[in-house]
Amino acid sequence: MGLDKLLRKKKATIVRRWFDVVVDTYPVDTRRFLKSQQDPFANPVGRTTMTGLKHLYDGIVEGMDRETAATHLDPIIRIRAVQDFTPAMAVAFVLDLKNVVKSVCNEELQRGDALPEWLRFEHRVDALALTGFDIYMSCREKIFQLKADNERTRVMQTFARAGLLKIEPEADANSGAK
């Protein structure tokens, strides 16, 4: 069986293990909750992660454009960008898919003829990881923009309260504070 075919066949196992790898980046007491709570509103981190990984896996196996990849990757990275992770830790789970597939499909990968498909798979995962860095940076930039807006609004309002400045509605709208 070719690797692509096998990846389709073992989707459920691989995605479940990939999910476990992502969840294992959280403290032990949190992992149990992330895995067991199925309600998407009670457990947005776990469910968003699971949904995203399923779509991403399909995309990697079947091929997807960058925009689609970003759509499914963004919600996961957006969460990890505000949690207690270094940039590498926030994004590394994408690359972890390689190890998951290696462990699940070890036997098939030993065969020489799987190489071209494996290389293509690896390339897609690498490309997804790079997209992940872009998303991570845009999230962090948004956080810093929100912080800067907050400070700017505070200063402007202090001046306004002191009668030193009249805030024009248009200028205020441009500040992004609304």
């Binding site: 509103f41 947005p44 907050n150 400070e151």
Partner: peptide
């Protein structure tokens, strides 16, 4: 406050997640 923006965004996630729906 502004300096704890990451905390605010993480803490507000469950609310935002419901709004997103």
């Amino acid at each position: 406050a502004g300096e704890d923006m990451e905390l605010r965004m993480a803490g507000g996630l469950p609310r935002a997640n419901a709004v997103k729906t």
